[in-house]
Design a protein around this nucleic acid. Sequence first.
DNA 1: ATTAAAAATTAGGTTAACCTAATTTTATAA
DNA 2: TTATAAAATTAGGTTAACCTAATTTTTAAT
Lengths: 217, 217
Amino acid sequence: MHTLTEENYLKAIFRISQNADVKITPTAIAEALGNNPASVIDMIKKLMEKKLIDYDKREGVKLTDTGLNHAIQIVRKHRLWEVFLLEKLGYNWDEIHAIAEELEHIQDNTLADRLDKFLGFPEYDPHGDPIPKANGKVPKSYSVTLANVKEGQSYRVAAVKDTSSAFLQYLLKLNIGIDTDIKLVEKISFDNSLVISIAGKENTTVSQKFGENILVD
Amino acid sequence: MHTLTEENYLKAIFRISQNADVKITPTAIAEALGNNPASVIDMIKKLMEKKLIDYDKREGVKLTDTGLNHAIQIVRKHRLWEVFLLEKLGYNWDEIHAIAEELEHIQDNTLADRLDKFLGFPEYDPHGDPIPKANGKVPKSYSVTLANVKEGQSYRVAAVKDTSSAFLQYLLKLNIGIDTDIKLVEKISFDNSLVISIAGKENTTVSQKFGENILVD
DNA sequence: ATTAAAAATTAGGTTAACCTAATTTTATAA
DNA sequence: TTATAAAATTAGGTTAACCTAATTTTTAAT
C-alpha cells in the first residue's frame, strides 16, 4: 500500500506524538529520521496528498485517522516481532530492535493477528512497550521515570525508553531487566546522578540520563 | 550488504541456473523478473563490478562463488520462512510464497540458523523444494515430472515447480499435496493430456502443463 | 552467403527519496 | 521594535532502478 519510507515517516511521527504533547515540526521529524528538513518537507507534501497527515505551520504535523491506524499497525507488528525474536528465536534484548525494524514492514493482512495468536497475545514487548491490539487499542504504557521518583522507595522496572544496543547492554551488565526491583537510595543534587540498589544488592550510581530512560511502576 | 533489487537478481539467476543447464541470457533474466532487458543490462554491469556475477555473450551470466553463496542464503531464508508461515502461523499452501518473498530479505547473520533450529532443521519446504543447509549444501531435489513418467504406474508427489497461487489452489481443489499418490493412467497422445488417479480415487484429466509442474518420486 | 528475426546494447528519460545552498518566514531577545 | 537566530521552504542536483526507442550484433533459415 505504502512505501517503506512512507511507513517510516508515519512511525516517526507517531513516536514523537507519543513522547509529549508538543507541536511536531519538520525539523523534529528530520532529527528523528536522521535526514534533512528539506527532504521532510517533500515527504510532508506527499503524505498530505495521500491524506495520511495534516500539516500547517501553526499546528505542526498531525496524523489523520487513516495515518494513525497505519502507524499503529506498524508499531504492533514491530513489537510482536520483537517478542517472537526474543522468545522463539532466542535473541538477546539488545539485538531484537534492529531486526524488528525490518520485519515491521512485511505486508500481509493477517500476519499481525496470526503472530499475535502464535505468541499468546502478549501485552508488552520485551522493552516493556505496550503492543497495540488488533482493534488499535493500546494497553496502558508507563511514563514515570526513575529520575522522577521519590528517594528511599523501591520500584519495579516496567519499561525502557531507549532501545539502543548501547543502553540495553549496559542494563544487561547491571543485571537490570523488565520486572527488576530498583530502590532509589539517593539523588545527588549536584548533577542529578542516582544512587540505586538493584534487586537488593549493594549500591550503584547511575546518571540522570540513565534514570530518564527507565520507566517504573 | 546488497540492495533488495540486487538480491532479487541473484535469486533469479540462481533459479534459472537450477532449471536447466542452459546459457543465462539478459532476456531470460528480464522475463524472470518481469522487466525490460535494457534494465537487466544495467544491473549486469553493476553486479559484475561487485564481482557477484560473470558475464560474456558466449557464456551468458554466471554467478561467482560469492554470488552463488549469497543466492543460496536468500533461498535458504525464503524456504525456512515458508515452513514457519505454514507450520507455525497456519497459512495455506498458496499464501506463503508471496510473504516469504519479503521475509527472505531480512538481514541478520544468525537469523537463518536460529529459524532453522526453531523449526527443527527441515529439509524441504512446503512445496517440496530443498532447503539449503547452513554450510550451503542443498538436499537432493526432484526433477522427474509427472509428464515424463510411465503410464500405468503410481508415484509420490515430491514437489511442485510452479508456486503460484493459481496452481496451488487448483491442487488444493484436486486434493493433491506433497506425498499424495498419483497414478498415471493414460497419456493422451493428441495433446499430451494426462489421465490420472489421485490417491486411488476415480480418474481425472489434467493438462500437459499441469503434469510438467508436478515433480514425482 | 544473404537476409530476416531475435537478442543485446546504447542513449536518453522518469520517479522516489534523498541532498546542498539559498531564500523566506517565524520566533526570540536585547 | 528591531536585529539575530532558528526554522521552513524553494530551487536545483544526485542516485538507483526502472523505462522506451533507437541501433548494433548475433542467430537462424533459406
